[in-house]
Design a protein around this nucleic acid. Structure first.
Lengths: 126, 126
DNA sequence: GGCTTGATTCGACATCTGTCAATATCGACA
DNA sequence: TGTCGATATTGACAGATGTCGAATCAAGCC
């Protein structure tokens, strides 16, 4: 599980700058795949938007029509992908997102090279 | 295929601002799932980084150890997800990325709410 | 210690996915 | 028109994935 960036300075090189290496593509794909499920996306969003940036399983599982083992499974997938972390506090287990991981994925998708016009969702460049 | 943003002003609301709706999560998940394969990520990257921002299948398929139908399948998945578009020009078919789609995904992942410490993917392992 | 509640793990199952070989389609060009 | 090269589609199949119920583990409480 090497969520680490490729050694050296090419941190967060966007997709469009140069072809991804196989290793780097594998790491990224593992993270994107974790995001490739509506339940997991909603889980991530619920946790990220929860007060304090963290939430316990009991808080979030109520928002889904799924069994608790299923929620637990999805949380595990997100955690294995390096997108979440968790900690047990007494009876409850709290989860929070790892911002640097999301940030890394976000940066990869910025296709600066590819003449992004400024279309529908023009996140005004900060 | 509604890759469109939800109607109204909530364009590109990041994950952390508020919980994703089911519909919105479904749309996003479809796109992220398409990115959740190393082959497809490399395809996308090869195309995006190719001269002119577009490439024909014959250009890119040589970079893979996969059969031609498999490459074609992955390209179809990326296209169905709204990440690529293509056009036939004589004998060859050219593909290019749709920057606004990548941009949209990138924006969603920006967890402004979640106290991202220091941008550049600094691993900053706590 | 024995319950109760919250969460994970296990085992099973149907479905989805990635891959290939074979075949079909589309354009160019003799 | 027929053939050829470039892509796409089809059909099949092994392996991965999402889901559940049952069992298990962890911590607090009687």
């Amino acid at each position: 599980m090497s969520n680490q960036l490729p050694d050296g300075g090419e941190c967060c090189s966007p997709l469009a700058r140069e072809p991804l290496t196989e290793d780097w593509a594998g790491d990224l794909a593992r993270m994107f795949k974790a995001l490739g499920d509506p339940v997991r996306l909603r889980l991530l969003s619920l946790i990220a938007s929860h007060a304090g940036g963290e939430a316990c399983v009991c808080d979030i599982s109520a928002s889904f029509d799924l069994s608790q083992p299923t929620i637990s499974h999805h949380l595990k997938v997100l955690r294995a992908a390096g997108l979440l972390d968790c900690e047990r506090r007494g009876t409850w287990v709290y989860y929070w997102v790892i911002p640097s991981a999301l940030h890394q994925l976000s940066a990869v998708l910025l296709t600066e090279g590819a003449a992004v016009p400024s279309p529908t969702c023009a996140e005004a460049p900060a």
